[in-house]
Structure formats: C-alpha cells, structure tokens
Design a binder for these strands. Sequence first.
DNA 1: GCCTTAATTTTACGCGCATAAAGAATTAAA
DNA 2: TTTAATTCTTTATGCGCGTAAAATTAAGGC
Lengths: 348, 348
Amino acid sequence: MECPAMSDPKIRTMEDFASASGISRPTISKYFNDPSSVRQSTRVKIEQALEQFEYRPNVYAINQNRRQTKNIGIVVPYLADPFFAEIARTIEAQVIQAGYRPVLLGSHGDPEQEIENLDNLRLIKPAGVLLAPLGRASDPARLDAFCRDVPTVLFDANVDGIGAAFVGSDNNQSIGLIVEYLCRTGQPPAFFEMKTPANPNALKRRTAYLNAMKRLGHAPVLVQASGGGWDFEAIGFREGSRVLTDRKLPTNTVLCSNDRLAIGLLSAAYQMGIRVGIEEGCTLRVAGHDDHPFSRYTSPTLTTVSQNYVAIAERSAETLFKLINDESPPTAREITLFEGNLVMRASA
Amino acid sequence: MECPAMSDPKIRTMEDFASASGISRPTISKYFNDPSSVRQSTRVKIEQALEQFEYRPNVYAINQNRRQTKNIGIVVPYLADPFFAEIARTIEAQVIQAGYRPVLLGSHGDPEQEIENLDNLRLIKPAGVLLAPLGRASDPARLDAFCRDVPTVLFDANVDGIGAAFVGSDNNQSIGLIVEYLCRTGQPPAFFEMKTPANPNALKRRTAYLNAMKRLGHAPVLVQASGGGWDFEAIGFREGSRVLTDRKLPTNTVLCSNDRLAIGLLSAAYQMGIRVGIEEGCTLRVAGHDDHPFSRYTSPTLTTVSQNYVAIAERSAETLFKLINDESPPTAREITLFEGNLVMRASA
DNA sequence: GCCTTAATTTTACGCGCATAAAGAATTAAA
DNA sequence: TTTAATTCTTTATGCGCGTAAAATTAAGGC
C-alpha cells in the first residue's frame, strides 16, 4: 500500500487543496498555470502539500476557463509508417518538454480523416498544431481555414501558403547528393517513382533528379508506377517486377523516390533472382530516400539519404512555440529546409 | 467562402443554439447526449438548425459535468512498430463506430511511460481503456491500481489477474501449427528468441515450442539472444549473425519468436551469403510469428503465422463496451484467445 | 373527444476552476 | 526606517453545460 502521508481528508477540488495547504485558491491556480509565477517560498509550500495530498486539478474545468489550453495537436498522414511514427515520437518529446500536452492523430492516408482530425482538434481548442499534411490529396481550402484559426506549423510536406511556417527536408540537396554519388560510383540512375504521387516531396524529388542529371550531363530516365494510395511497398513490388521483367531499363541503377518503394523493388528483384548491390556479380544497384527504419535490414541493406528528422522535429516545435507566445504580428511564412546525409550501405 | 445559410447571429453556447432553433436547452443537451432520446420530430428540427448554425458543444464543459466521458484510452507498447500501429488503428475504428472518442498513446517500450500514459488518461476520466501492456517490464501493482479505478481490457499481452479481461492470440495453437508445418516439410526447427523477453507472449511461445517438439518426438533447440529493449531487428541481426557464424545449429530450420527477430536474422543470413528458403540450393529455413506488415517484403518473403488482429481488436473493444454499459457485477476475468493462421511464403 | 403516457419546457442549481479587482501582507530597495 | 514594488488574500463573477424536479404540452389509444 502506498501511503505517502495519510491523505486522510479527501482532497477533490482546488478549494480543498488550498485550505489543506494553507494557501489561497487563486494562488494555487496561479501555481498550476505557471509554477514560476509564484514566490519561491510559497512554491515550496505548495509542492510539499502536493506530495502529501497528491491532488491534480480537473483538466476539463481548467480548459473550460483558460483562454488557451496547453494542448498541441500533432497530425501525421500515416501512423503505421515507422518513419512518421518516429518523427511523431520525437515531436511528442519536444512538446512535453515545453510543458504542453501532445495529442497525436494519424490520418490513415485519407484526406477526409485529415480534415476530421483537424475538426476534432478544434473541439479541444489547442494552443497550436503541428501538421504533416497528406499533401496533394489534402483539401487545401479546409486546411487553410483551420490554419487561420489555430496557430499551425507544417512539417514534412509543404502545401503552398498554408500554415504559419514549414519545416522539412531539402529534397533538391538530398537527391542531388545521392545522384552525384551514384553517378560517381557507377552508371547514372533511373528514377523510380509514382506517376501521380500524393506527396509533394515526391514532385520535388523528381525535379531534383532531373536537375541533377542535367547538371551531370546524363539523360534522365523516369520509371513511373501507376496506382495510388499509401501502400508503397506493394506498388514498388508490383511495378518493380514489371520493369525488371521488361528489361528495358537503359541503366543498372535505380534511385527510388522513397525507401518504401525501394523495399518493394528489392523484394521484387530478389524474387526474380537479380542480385542487387555493389559487390561482384551484382547486376542492379538500388538506392532510396529517407533512411526508413527498415532500410538497414533489407537484403541487401539499402543505400539511401537520411532525413534529419530530429532537426525537423525540433525546429517545427520551436517555431510553433514562438508563434504561440509571440504577440508580434505574424511575419512572413518561413520555410526551413534541412539537408540530408548520404547513408552508404550495400545496395548501391 | 462557405456560407451554408448566413450564420449571422453568432452561436457560441448551447443557450444561443437553443433559442436559435426554438428548442429548449435541456432538450438540446439531451439530443447531444443521445440523438435517439428525443422525439423524431424535434430531432429533425435540431438537425436542421444544426446545418444552419453549425454549432458544436464545448467538450470541456460537457466532460466537466458528465459522470462519464466518451473517451476511450488506447495504450500500446510501441507505436513505431507497424504491428501495433495497425492494431491500434483497427481498434480506433471500433471505438469511433461505437460513438466514443479514442485517445491513442504509445509507451515507447518504457514502463515509466506506460504508467505516465495511464496517469494522463486518469486526468481525462476515460469511460474505459484498452491496454496492450509492455508485459513483464510493466509495473503490475500500478497497472492493477489503475484497472481497479477504470474499466480496462487488456489485449495482445496478458498480465495475470490485471484488468477486467484479456483478448489475445493462442500462442500454443499458433506455434504448434507452424512447428508441425516445419517438421512435416523439413528438419524440425530450432527456436530463436530473447533469453529474457519483455513480452509474456514470448514465454508462452517458448513453452508452446517445447510442447510441440515433445509431441512430435523431436529434441528442442533453444537459441537465446541476450540483450533487451524493443529493437528486435537489431537483436535478431546481431545474435543471428553470431549463431550462423558459429555453425553449431543442429538443424537447418529456425523458428523465430516473432517476425521482427526473423527480419534481423534474414538480413544477417543474406549478408553472410546464406541462401534462405525452400528452393533448391537453400541451406536455411526461417519462419516467424505475427505476420508483420513487412514480412511479405523480406528477402525471401517470410513464412509466418498471422495473428487475427481484427478479431482481437473487435473482441477487446466489444468486451470493454459491455463492461462500461453493464450494471451487472463484474464477472470473472475472461480470457479470449484467437487462433493464428499459417502464412506460407518463401522462407520456410 | 377524453385519458394515459411520453416528451418537452421552465426553473434552478452545481460542476471545478479562471480571472478580475481591491486591499493586506511581504519583500526589496533606498 | 521608510517607501515602493511585488505577491498574496479576499471577494466576487462567470465559463458552458449536466441534470433534477415540477409544470406544461404533445402524441397515441379508446
């Protein structure tokens, strides 16, 4: 039995706790709003009483009356994607550290779910929202309507003009990096992607690939998979099988728009008996983008470009907090891009 | 500009909406509590007004006064594991369909985080909680204390005597199934697992393996990986490399306690040039357990046993709702186990 | 048409806290 | 020590809704 100090008199309300601790209720209220806003000596008193009586204020009563809650919404397009799960987790930590309460929501790749998530967030009157939008599938008008009402920072995927700021990866740099690497170490890569990608990053990566190839004096080769949705591995497998069967590829090197496509492609190659990698006897090189958590366990391990998602998480959270606490007029929409790093493994 | 019907008079409170719709406030309140509890004709009136004025009641005011909120907590040990992300998503859908609001929390493999999640859930006074505990790492006393206060159903991992019910997989059946399959189609398997697994399912699987081998008249071989944590792929890779290097395995078949270990092992085998599978020329067979989302893209694709997580999700949600709505005295702790299905792929 | 039953309105109170204003007490500075 | 600034207490009001009880009205059956 835990029994810190015989919490005999039942402390249910802040009033109870106030009289039990010998401090006035409004001061207690101030303390819970911001512990540093009361004198050090009274703070100590309160915290001692807190250990005795283990009282916790009623969240609903608090939030009903405060102008602004301490809730921060975090919305990601797909929670079952380990990449987003990881970045969400990192952001969560930032939010908690800053004294806010994270509320994590996944959109399951569905634009309606995304809007529903935002609508649900509205109901809890969040201080701000960190939103990784679905991208092209998103309903920009409704996204914008939300961002006008609630301080919102976009991350991972940009939607032009929406939200107070955007923090993401510099696809131009990262794709340039790996294209250069591939060209330097072997045949110039073809680019494997979705024909009509939902994610705006995919479009930027395509452009970046084309630019990089031009710069290096090679003819670009686009391999575009039809189909939609978020089941990238399946698409990568299906279209990868097709392309490898056709044998029309003018190069032995494939750069995938993201790691999940690459995972599908590697699986297809393996099943066709095609040896992938940079070792002797390999007839195909495959590279990806994102440094997906599973990319280090593929066969062969996947050469890719890592996104600096820690930096992205930190900066986007930081930007949001500034936005929330700043009385200054909202400045111009700021775009921050972090560079990727080459992760050399066995596949290319 | 959206402007359904000129919502000129600003509807902020239920009182506003009541007068605007010509219905009394208590009736409006009843409607939002349960739309079917008001007469059909008034329900129509309210819903018409609702379209005109798009009023939403204040969540905080509601929950402050209701004896019970409509919140259902969902706690999983590790959100970055696609298996849990998927099952969480399925449960979410169930919860929403039943008219509740899911609150999803991940414990990041950390027992303290798990307790913190439960503490945070307490603050929002949930109607009930669906908890997939960390397992052996969990703090049983504090888990129990929570379950005594809040209707809680455990799923995925059982902790003896804690929670009102448990819904999971029948490890004995599923492991038996795949052991039989492996024995029937080749050499009897060794069992690859963690020496001190955090997950109680792992222990049941070990026992199930030993039982199955005994039943089939084979000598069991346990391969136990040291180390802890939730980075199963890394452990599978590291320990897998070691075991394959040692060449002390008296069989060419390895059954892994879960797919994530198998993913690591497959990666290790590939890097060592060991051909895995049931084809000609393969010297190793590998099987897993769980039908992890990535198991169909490994090289080779992973033979495994699928958990019926849709059934688990449905039953656990269903059980919780019954528990919440039932006035009957809490019956004996019910344990429901669903059978697994063999998923035959290329690795074994 | 009257009666029974169910649904609604009216009235009223309370939930647990934020917050504002004014005065009292404490602290720091002069 | 005096004064000014800070912090605290007291007092009071209100947030938006749940909910209970009594009075009223509407619906359905004969």
